[in-house]
Amino acid sequence: MDLRVVLAGLFMAAGCFFLIVAAIGILRFPDFYTRMHPAGKADTLGQALIIAGLIIYWGINLVSVKLLIIALFIMVANPTAAYALANAAYASGVKPWKKGEERK
């Protein structure tokens, strides 16, 4: 086995782990604003890691440039979308969950 393939596999495994954790977080956290945290962070990193794994596997050429563009776009767009969601919810008066309250 090639070292590059192993490295790509490691990156993709780490990315899959973060995506699963993001999904679990979105299911487990008690309210909308806390769910923003896994959606904005772990999801972004997970996708970036998987795409980084694909780039390592593929080497440097036009395909990996496209992958890089996708990864960079996700890294800008994902937090922006999370911000837009949080801002819309905040503006429409969704109350943040406080410690000790019932989960919603």
């Binding site: 604003y33 923003m36 945290h37 904005g40 937090p79 999370a82 911000y83 949080a86 801002n87 943040p96």
Partner: peptide, 30 residues
């Protein structure tokens, strides 16, 4: 301002909820 807002969302324990162009931020932290 948008760079700070996105960086806050990506880094430990905080998500930006509101960022105005005069620089006032509302941040939700875990």
């Amino acid at each position: 301002i948008s760079m700070l807002a996105n960086s806050i969302t990506l880094t430990p324990g905080t998500v930006t909820m509101e960022a105005k162009s005069d620089g006032s931020f509302t941040v939700h932290s875990l």
